[in-house]
Design a protein around this nucleic acid. Structure first.
Length: 479
RNA sequence: GCCCCCAUCGUCUAGAGGCCUAGGACAACACCCUUUCACGGUGUAGACAGCGAUUCGAAUUCGCUUGGGGGUACCA
């Protein structure tokens, strides 16, 4: 791989929304390309027409873009080696398949699904690993013509001969395979479309992909693919196989474990920056101890051969913590834009943009998900719900504190943060000295009256946002 | 069944023969800060799967066992 251009690709199939696992693979490809100054292409693998859909394809585009993993070439942006959707490349594959037949590397197979099923059953009954019987390997020209005349459409199989195959994996090191264990596998289906293993090789070859970085669920495909490259006389790319992401129960991460699609995470209120950062840490560790890093910083520090080769478990705790970190640090205007959709049940128009930002600013601190904002900002938009603080409001402290608080605040300058802060302090001191109330109790009474809660955002800021009129109204209703 | 991959605290990981009485992060717990919750700070607890071998010396090398994962399609 002398001085050829480094080109990587991510090749999702649109049979589902973009999975976090795929997102991580995309990220690692992106990081590798970025670090090495290479190109990163997106190819849609929709050879399985039945399972592919336009909606899923759109979800994949949107999710990748939301994550900021923009591609240099792809179905929407084009590029020198297009088209980038396999369904638009169907005319390409048969030519190469024919070439392999001509060179004796492949042959037509007329076996029906029933025939094949039977072979499988027999193998299973005899407890012997299944391999295609090669029934069609030595069909004569006449026999094939006859079969075709009967209207039987053949598939095309690649002829696998014995060979010790070795390749050096970018993350796993040397990998060895005995190809005699692999049966002759199909490269073209009888319906004229290519199988996955064939389409990938043809496309990667034609698109000049130099490094194939993907999940380790593809390891066993690799020898087949290398065999095809070799038969084609093409240059074999470098391969790198990443460990998989598992659910906490160590099974494949699937819907029953909760969110699996990037779009689900976004809907739940995860920030794409946090999700990306978190997923990068699954299998990769920064050279310094600083785990919170943006994509550029990660790319600068990224070394593919240092990626862990084992599986990792997707645990929410750290993701949640990280999301909280990003929420706390994010530019407040940007955060407000992201937060507003989560506040759709409220009439946010009653506040100015400035005040809305203020609301987000004071409520962002303890939250872990943007969705938490709906509950945490409730009392800014609606009347407080007093159920939880009933006892406090009916108690002695509240009955003493609230009237005094109401009386005093009427004279306060609500634009003056300092003043409110100090006056509240005075009230605390007053009740401590005269009634022996703990500062905490006094504040709880006030907070409960204003918000219906005993916990929440900074009290001074809350008072300022609510405004004098609203506070007077709330207090008068209670007293 | 067969083939392949993997194996350090609960989780993500650092560690590429002596720097390891194994480091960090999340979670847990304790304390501090504080007008609440939180944030933040300080600390505590917590791991080299097992067994052999190589070596003066092994978490690091090799083998076996066990465990987990993946593959075994005219699905990708």
């Amino acid at each position: 791989m002398s001085n050829e251009k480094i080109r990587v690709r991510i090749a999702p199939s649109p049979s589902g929304n973009l999975h976090v696992g795929t997102a991580r693979t995309a990220l690692f490809n992106y990081l590798f390309a970025k670090k090495m100054g290479g190109e990163y292409v997106l190819r849609i693998e929709d050879t399985d027409l039945d399972r592919s859909s336009e909606a899923f394809k759109q979800n994949i585009f949107d999710s990748l873009k939301a994550l900021g993993l923009n591609w240099d070439e792809g179905p929407d942006v084009g590029g020198e080696y297009g088209p980038y959707k396999q369904s638009e490349r169907f005319d390409i594959y048969p030519k190469f398949a024919q070439m392999l037949i001509d060179k004796g590397y492949a042959y037509e197979c007329f076996c029906s699904n029933e025939d094949l099923d039977k072979e499988h059953e027999i193998a299973e009954a005899n407890k012997v690993p299944y391999k295609y019987s090669r029934k069609c390997l030595n069909l004569t020209e006449e026999e094939r013509a006859k079969l075709k005349a009967q209207g039987i459409k053949p598939s095309i199989r690649f002829k696998v001969d014995y060979k010790e195959l070795v390749f050096n994996d970018l993350v796993k090191g040397e990998l060895k395979f005995d190809t005699s264990l692999i049966g002759d596998f199909a490269i073209m289906k009888s319906n004229g479309t290519p199988t996955y293993n064939f389409a990938v090789v043809i496309d990667d070859m034609l698109m000049k992909i130099s490094h194939v970085i993907r999940g380790e669920d593809h390891i066993s495909n690799t020898p087949k693919q290398i065999l095809i490259y070799e038969a084609l006389g093409a240059k074999v790319p470098e391969f790198g196989h990443l460990g998989m992401i598992l659910a906490p129960d160590r099974s494949k991460l699937s819907k029953r474990h909760g969110a699996t699609a990037v779009s689900d995470f976004i809907k739940q209120g995860y920030l794409t920056e946090a999700l990306l950062n978190f997923v990068a840490l699954l299998g990769w560790a920064p050279s310094d101890a600083q785990e919170i890093k943006n994509v550029d910083e990660i790319a600068a520090d990224f070394r593919i051969h240092e990626v862990s080769s084992s599986n990792s478990i997707f645990e929410y705790e750290k993701l949640n913590w990280m999301n909280g970190q990003y929420i706390k640090k994010m530019d407040i205007s940007k955060l407000t834009d992201l937060a507003l959709p989560f506040l759709s049940k409220y009439d946010t128009s009653k506040y100015s943009r400035e005040k809305l930002e203020k609301i987000i600013e004071v409520t962002r601190e303890p939250i872990t998900l943007l969705a938490d904002l709906e509950n945490d900002t409730q009392y800014f938009f609606e009347n407080p719900i007093y159920d939880e603080v009933k006892e406090i409001l009916e108690g002695e402290v509240a009955r003493a504190v609230l009237p005094k608080f109401l009386e005093e605040l009427k004279t306060w300058d609500f634009d003056n943060h300092e003043e409110i802060h100090d006056k509240l302090g005075d009230i605390r001191t007053f009740f401590k000295e005269n009634n022996g109330y703990k500062p905490k109790e006094t504040m709880w009474a006030i907070r409960s009256a204003l918000t219906g809660r005993t916990r929440g955002a900074d009290m001074v800021a809350t008072i300022q946002i609510l405004g004098k009129d609203e506070i007077i109204k709330r207090l008068e209703n209670l007293i």
